[in-house]
Amino acid sequence: MTRVQRETTTYVAIALACVAMLIWVIPTFTPPYPGYGASPALVPNVAVGLTLVMAVLELIRAGVGRWSGRARPPEDRQYPEDTDSGGFSQLGRLRLGHLARFMIPCALMLPAMEWIGFLPSSVLFLLVIQVLIGGVRPVRAVVLAVVVAGLMYAAVRYGFNVPIPGPYGW
């Protein structure tokens, strides 16, 4: 997928989501008008409307550019490569496999805390993350996992007096 295709897909997805919001989500999940002030649906409609207008404008611009046959700069025609500008923009390739690799352990850690307790699940989680990043020193990995999980536990439980998630209290 080229950058132009990816952008077009994104704008189409945003526009469709906005239409769904305007037609179904906002009317269904917003309280009825109480008879005074602005309608509770006004500001959500403005926000979604603004988003929709911008997405449609971008689609029209892309369509006009394609229809007029104007050549786009080479970087717009190619697959977006990673930028390392050091600024806010980090335009680049979407690596869904990479994303899943780190999100799955994070998502599994939360129910794991309920099943096996905070400390064991935290140690396991830290070990898995280190392995996924490429930590190759097993002793260091175990020590780091135990120390970090232990320190966090102590800070949360005794430092901030916040209840620990999970059934066992550890």
């Binding site: 990043i133 490429g134 930590g135």
Partner: peptide, 10 residues
């Protein structure tokens, strides 16, 4: 990175 990022994620 293998030391820093697990700590930051946690």
């Amino acid at each position: 990175a293998s030391v820093l990022y697990p700590i930051v994620i946690f």
